[in-house]
Simulated scan of single mutants.
Amino acid sequence: MKKKKIFSQAVLITILGAALVIVLIPIFWAISMSFDATTIDVVPNPPRFIPKEFSVFNYKYALEAIPIARYYINTFLLTLINTAISVFTAMACGYAFSKGKFPCKGILFLMVLAVMMIPFEVRMIPLFLQYRDWNMLDTWWPLILGSFAWAYGIFLARQFIDSIPDSLRESASIDGAGEWYIFLKIILPLCGPVIATLVIFQVVNQWNNFLWPLVVVSNPKKQVISVGLAMFNASETARYLGPRLAVSVLGAIPLMIVYLFLQKYIVQSVMLSGVKE
């Protein structure tokens, strides 16, 4: 049995290692070629993984061609604002649906679940028309207001808070604590894992958000990095392939750093994202 277990683990490690290599090869190639001066016009064929002529020209060209610093600032601010709003409101609504007692609670929660089942593309045109009537197009408001109702975050928060014993809330209530005190001082400190999960999900989603900013924001100075890089790759100034690789690397660096330093919490978030009974 022990030999069989060792063999199965070795097979699993081999398969995962091969999958890791397959995933990392394109990333390593893109980073390497972004520092190769010979990739300005053409990509070498057959591909190579070591720069033939090491140069930072591609990065200099990319930084001069697009205001990437502005895109970084815009994306960072929107990610920070939306993550704070969406996580807090998701936890508050999850607490209400889990421990609160109010009319039609079950029906309202089913409506939240229904929102999760409707693709964003179906809701995009009505939302666009709504924000147009409110004169909010070409501003950040359409990108922020939606964070007040994060259906998946509410669902996940409610599932986690269900596992917290009701006796804690009842004891605090008997001692005279109000709902906000119970939520902020008792419930939230016990919800560290689910809060970390929601934060990671939102940071990744907000940084990669593309379609909605493309639709509602037209001013390049207000645009996020995902749209800005796509506009650069589609523009006439992107005729050189090397700078396009450099731009792609610059856009991916923040998420690489997040995954590097928060990999333990990311693994925990994947495990926690399952439905808890």
Rank of each mutant, 00 (worst) to 15 (best):
G192I: 04
A230Y: 13
Q130V: 01
Q130G: 10
S163R: 12
G242W: 01
Y131C: 03
M117D: 08
P165Q: 01
E179N: 12
M136A: 15
N208S: 05
Y131G: 00
L145R: 03
V203K: 05
F109K: 10
G176Y: 05
P189E: 07
F148L: 12
V215S: 07
P220T: 04
S218W: 07
S171K: 08
W207G: 05
A177F: 03
F183T: 06
E179T: 12
L214M: 11
L129V: 07
V194G: 01
D133G: 08
I118M: 02
V115F: 03
Q206D: 10
A234N: 15
A149W: 09
R132T: 13
L108W: 14
M231W: 03
D166G: 14
N135Q: 15
L145E: 06
W140K: 06
P126L: 07
A196V: 00
I107A: 13
G153D: 08
I144L: 07
L156W: 02
S147P: 03
V217Y: 03
V227K: 04
A177D: 04
G228Q: 01
M116F: 05
Q206C: 12
S173H: 08
I161M: 15
L145M: 10
L190T: 12
N209G: 08
I107T: 13
E236C: 00
Q206R: 13
W207Y: 04
Q159S: 12
S167H: 10
M111Y: 06
L129N: 14
L108G: 14
V203C: 11
F148A: 09
R132M: 12
V115T: 15
F128I: 01
N233G: 02
W212S: 05
T197M: 14
Y240I: 00
Y131I: 02
L184C: 11
N135G: 13
N219C: 02
N219A: 10
V224R: 04
V112C: 03
N135K: 14
L211S: 07
D133K: 14
A196D: 10
Y181F: 12
T197Q: 11
W134S: 06
S235R: 11
G228T: 06
A157N: 04
E170W: 12
G242C: 04
S218C: 00
V115S: 06
V122L: 14
V204L: 14
M231Y: 08
F183P: 07
P213C: 06
V215R: 02
Y131V: 04
E236P: 05
L113C: 05
S163T: 15
I125N: 09
L229T: 00
L143Y: 04
V227N: 02
D138Y: 06
M231K: 11
P193A: 11
V194W: 02
M116N: 13
F183H: 08
V203R: 03
T197E: 10
N219E: 14
I154G: 03
V227E: 02
W180N: 08
I225K: 07
V122M: 14
E121T: 15
I107P: 00
I174D: 07
D166A: 11
S226C: 03
A234M: 13
D133Q: 15
Y152K: 01
D162G: 02
S226A: 08
Y240E: 12
I107M: 14
D175M: 08
A157M: 07
R239A: 10
F120N: 13
V224F: 12
P142T: 04
P142S: 03
